[in-house]
Design a protein around this nucleic acid. Structure first.
Lengths: 135, 135
DNA sequence: GATAAAGGTTCTAGCTACTGGAAGGTCAAG
DNA sequence: CTTGACCTTCCAGTAGCTAGAACCTTTATC
């Protein structure tokens, strides 16, 4: 299987597949006589696993850990679950951060008339003097 | 005012302040005879504005636009508001994305026993064969 | 056989927003 | 005169790719 077929079957670009290999996430495939990478089914499965893990927020390093656990017959599901719980906590804090931004920004936009006048509560809130300086 | 004082007053690191200048966000300060940057109050205000805009999610490029609007007496508040509304939409879509991850990940963790057994629904969902392969 | 298109390979560089470090000049105190 | 803190510059690295250059291989067509 050449790289473009793997790409089509996984929806991951050839560049990206090579990148994953170079990053050490993917076990390097055998090479054909012409130097082309010769992939097998296992590679497709690994790439799909990376893709799904990425979709739910895991970093490449974390994907690497997950793949290692996946390959290890002596793993415990507790290890995997811990990774997932850690990630869940990260996602929650990221959501909280974005919600805070949203709240602030939403309040500001509602105060802004959005007309032709230069007077703008958004800029004022960001630190601009409301109209004139007192210094 | 030397860079470290500006840093203390804004809570932005000297490295970061130089970086903002190099990126073109900050108007370059005059230089003292020894080559040191000599900041004035305006710079502190600009840096604080960048800091607050960054906190509510604006990118550096967007901060640059906001600063430009802030300096322009002929601006309209509508322009500023549009920037804010765009950013709000971006934040909303990012939150939605994270919520989707959260939902999936949360469901998976709840299915995982988290014990010593290697059998793990999380890995299964990520693409691993449930127990054995059919190939 | 010539040639062109469509694959493959490697390498380098760019993106965001910084941070850290090296190598060196300057300033204030002892 | 030395020490330490400050300042300067530039280079490199972080995450996760993507784009491009420069080159080789395969396949099809003329």
């Amino acid at each position: 299987m050449n790289i473009s077929e793997v790409s089509q079957r996984t929806g991951v670009s050839p560049k990206n597949i090579r990148f994953y290999e170079q990053r050490g996430l993917l076990t390097p495939p055998e090479r054909a006589d012409n130097g082309y990478r010769a992939y097998v089914e296992t590679h497709v499965a690994e790439i799909l696993m990376i893709k799904r893990a990425r979709l739910i927020g895991f970093s490449l390093d974390e994907c690497q850990s997950l793949l290692a656990l996946s390959r290890d017959p002596h793993r415990s599901s507790a290890d995997v679950k811990q990774h997932a719980l850690d990630k869940l906590a990260q996602i929650d804090s990221k959501i909280a951060e974005l919600e805070a931004m949203r709240t602030t920004l939403s309040a500001l936009t509602q105060q802004c008339p959005g007309d032709a006048s230069p007077q703008c509560p958004i800029l004022t809130a960001l630190g601009e003097s409301p109209c004139n300086k007192h210094g």
